[in-house]
């Protein structure tokens, strides 16, 4: 089995522009909304800190789901969510140690990074190259 590629963050490089959030929402929803993004930049403006926060593939959510709606993608290793089975119960949100499992504001189902079918848009468009996919 080949090594799973992950998104990693060079936090010193992130300037907090949040282009990643918009790229993510546009790819998945065809509109612009950070509240629908699977990657979100956490900030402390006073200290000049900005850190993109995204799924680390620990799969704690897979174990937590009472509906069996969450699994690991064979192709990319990303977490995949069967929105037909998901009830929006939030067990996965509570189980996620990194706070990167969200509930879709409109559809009320769990969402998290799916690696954009193997070409993460956030990585592709980061102007500082603060995100890596390797």
């Amino acid at each position: 089995m080949t090594q799973i590629k992950r998104i990693s963050v060079i936090k010193e490089k992130c300037n907090g522009c949040r282009i990643c959030e918009l790229r993510c929402s546009f790819f998945h929803e065809r509109f612009y909304a950070p509240s629908h993004s699977r990657i979100r930049v956490k900030k402390n403006e006073k200290e000049g800190i900005a850190v993109p926060n995204v799924c680390r593939f620990c799969y704690k959510c897979v174990e937590s789901c009472p509906e069996g709606a969450i699994s690991k993608s064979e192709k990319t290793g990303a977490v995949q969510i069967d929105s037909g089975k998901c009830t929006g119960c939030r067990e996965c949100v509570l189980a996620c140690p990194f706070g990167v499992m969200y509930i879709h504001p409109v559809n009320n189902v769990a969402i998290t990074c799916d690696l954009c079918e193997g070409e993460p848009q956030c990585v592709k468009y980061c102007p500082e190259k603060a995100l890596l996919y390797e």
Partner: peptide, 12 residues
């Protein structure tokens, strides 16, 4: 120390 960008700005 670093760049601090406005929202959605490639120039930062």
């Amino acid at each position: 120390v670093k760049s601090e960008s406005c929202f959605a700005c490639p120039i930062h």
